[in-house]
Design a protein around this nucleic acid. Structure first.
Length: 465
DNA sequence: GCATGATCATGC
DNA sequence: GCATGATCATGC
C-alpha cells in the first residue's frame, strides 16, 4: 500500500518521506489503520514501521533500510513542568552478543553496521494518549560527529574488554561516556545470559545511547541550545576522557579556594551561605574553560554531575549527599529499571575534594566515579524496601514528646551505600501518601529523599588518591 | 559522638 | 513556590 512512496535505497528519499510525519500523528498520516484493532495495541515504533514505512518489524543484524544503511528509531519526548520537551528514555540499540563481540573490531562490529546512520523520529509522549495519537515533533538523520565517534568507539571497546576479561556480569551503565550497556528485558532469571570467559551468568544488555546524549541530538537537530566543548578532537587522541579532564584540573591542586578565585578573577561573596557549592561549580567551569552561562557539551552529553565535597582536616567526610526528594505516589508506581532514582545515579560523577586546612579549603583531588554493578544492585534493594514500606502504610514508628516523628525507612546503618532522610523545608513540607499511615491515619508525610552515605563518599575519596 | 529528623538559605 | 545544597537540633 505504501510502495513507491519512497526509494528504499536512497537516504534522502527516505528522509523526505519521513519528514512528512512532522506535526502529525500516525492516525493523521495513515488514516485507515485507526480502525484496525491491532493498531490500537502495538507500540509506536512497530506501528511506524508497519503502517507508515510498510515493512514488518524485524531483528535483522542489518539496518532497517539496508541498501541506504539507515536504521529507523523512534523515541519519546516528555514534557517538563516548565513546558520544555526532553527525551524520556535512552535509545536502545542492538543486543550485545557476549559470545561474538570478543572477535569483532568496532568498524566491522554488528553495532556499527546497524547503527552507523540513524533515522530518528521524535514524538511527543503523553500518558493519556494511545501511540497512534502521539504527535511527531521532529524527524532527522543523525551522523555521529567525528569527536563523538571517538568517544563512542572507546566506550564500545571498554564494554568489549569487560566481556573479554570475563566480567560481563559487572557491566554498569556508568562505566562509559555516551554509549551505554543498558539492561534489556525483565529483571527475572530468564534475562540472564552466558558469557564466553566466565561461568557467571550476566544480565542481558543492549547498546544504548544515553538519554542525555539523545537529548543533545534532539537539541542540535533542532538547533536550539548552544554548548561549549572542553575537549578538541586532537586532544582526544592524547588520553582517556577522564584523564584529559582531570589533567586540566591538576594545576590547581593544593591551591586554596581564595587563591583559585583570584587567579581566575572570580567575584567572591564569602558571606553567602551556599558560597561553597556555587563557587566550586563556577571554579570547575572556569578551569575547564567554559563560560559560566553555557553548558559543558561533554558533560551534558554524558550527564556528568559535578559533586564538590569538603574533607575535614583529619580526612573524614561529614556530609551525606542528598538526591532530589521523591514523590511517594510516583515511587510505588515505578519499577527499578525505569525509576527516576536509577536515572539520577547511573551516570558518572566528577568528584572534586576540598580539604580543610586551618581556616580555608584547598582543592586537593578530583576524579570521575560511577556506581559499580554491585552498587546499583544495592540501590535497587533499598529502593524496593522503601517501596514496600510506602505500599504497606507502615511509615511512622513513633512520635516523641517533643513531636519528633521517627519513621521506618532504611537508615544509615542498613546499607553501606544509601539511606532515606527528610529533604524538605520543614516537617509540614509534605507529599501525599498513596496508603495512609496505619498509626496516625495521616495522608501526607514530610518529603524524603535518598542520600548517599558519607562513608561511601569517604571510600571514593580514598580511592581517588 | 553519632544517627536521625528538622530546618535554613539561596536561586531560579 | 519549589528544588537544591547545606546545616542545625534532638535523643540515644
Amino acid at each position: 500500500m505504501i510502495e513507491n512512496k519512497y526509494d528504499s535505497s536512497s537516504k534522502s528519499s527516505i528522509l523526505e518521506y519521513a519528514k512528512i510525519l512532522e506535526g502529525k500523528s500516525l492516525k493523521d498520516s495513515c488514516g485507515d489503520i485507526a480502525i484496525s484493532s491491532r493498531a490500537n495495541k502495538g507500540n509506536f515504533g512497530t506501528l511506524l514501521e508497519e503502517f507508515y514505512f510498510g515493512y514488518k518489524p524485524n531483528s535483522n543484524s542489518e539496518a532497517d533500510f539496508y541498501e541506504a544503511e539507515l536504521e529507523l528509531k523512534s523515541t519519546p519526548l516528555r514534557r517538563l513542568k516548565n513546558g520544555e520537551w526532553v527525551c524520556k528514555e535512552r535509545l536502545v540499540l542492538n543486543i550485545i552478543n557476549y559470545l561474538d563481540i570478543p572477535y569483532e573490531d568496532f568498524m566491522n562490529s554488528s553495532f556499527w553496521k546497524k547503527n552507523k546512520n540513524l533515522l530518528l523520529v521524535f514524538y511527543l509522549w503523553e500518558r493519556e494518549l494511545l501511540p497512534l495519537d502521539y504527535v511527531i515533533d521532529l524527524v532527522g538523520i543523525w551522523d555521529f560527529p567525528q569527536k563523538d565517534l571517538k568517544i563512542i568507539q572507546r566506550d564500545w571497546n571498554l564494554i568489549k574488554s569487560k566481556i573479554t576479561s570475563g566480567q560481563a556480569h559487572l557491566l554498569s551503565e556508568g562505566d562509559t561516556i555516551y554509549l551505554g550497556a543498558c539492561t534489556k528485558g525483565s529483571t527475572s532469571e530468564k534475562s540472564f545470559r552466558k558469557q564466553p570467559f566466565s561461568d557467571e551468568l550476566a544480565k542481558q544488555r543492549a547498546f544504548s545511547l544515553k538519554r542525555s546524549y539523545l537529548n543533545t541530538i534532539y537539541n542540535s537537530l533542532n538547533g536550539s541550545i548552544e554548548y561549549d566543548s572542553i575537549l578538541s578532537e586532537s586532544e582526544l587522541d592524547e588520553g582517556s576522557f577522564d584523564d584529559l579532564i582531570v589533567r586540566k584540573i591538576e594545576p590547581y591542586f593544593s591551591l586554596s579556594v581564595k587563591d583559585i578565585q583570584s587567579r581566575l578573577g572570580l567575584e567572591l561573596n564569602q558571606h553567602s551561605k551556599n558560597y561553597f557549592s556555587s563557587i566550586s561549580n563556577r571554579i570547575i567551569k572556569r578551569i575547564l574553560g567554559v563560560s559560566e552561562e553555557k553548558f559543558i557539551e561533554e558533560f551534558e552529553k554524558a550527564s556528568i554531575t559535578i559533586k564538590s565535597i569538603r574533607v575535614e582536616e583529619n580526612g573524614r567526610i561529614k556530609e551525606n549527599i542528598s538526591l532530589p526528594a521523591f514523590k511517594f505516589e510516583d515511587l510505588i508506581e515505578e519499577d527499578w529499571n525505569d525509576s527516576i532514582l536509577k536515572d539520577t545515579i547511573e551516570n558518572k560523577f566528577l568528584f572534586v575534594f576540598y580539604k580543610k586546612n586551618a581556616e580555608q579549603h584547598t582543592l586537593e583531588r578530583a576524579g570521575f566515579w560511577n556506581l559499580s554493578s554491585k552498587d546499583m544492585d544495592e540501590f535497587e534493594r533499598v529502593f524496593n524496601v522503601t517501596k514496600e514500606i510506602i505500599k504497606s502504610g507502615e511509615i511512622i514508628r513513633d512520635i516523641s514528646e517533643k513531636g519528633i516523628v521517627r519513621n521506618n525507612f532504611p537508615k544509615l546503618k542498613d546499607s553501606y551505600l544509601t539511606h532515606i532522610r527528610p529533604h524538605a523545608t520543614n516537617r509540614d513540607d509534605t507529599y501525599s501518601l498513596p496508603v495512609p499511615d496505619k498509626k496516625t491515619k495521616q495522608k501526607e508525610f514530610t518529603k524524603q529523599s535518598f542520600w548517599i552515605n558519607s562513608s561511601y563518599v569517604e571510600m571514593i575519596y580514598r580511592a581517588l588518591s
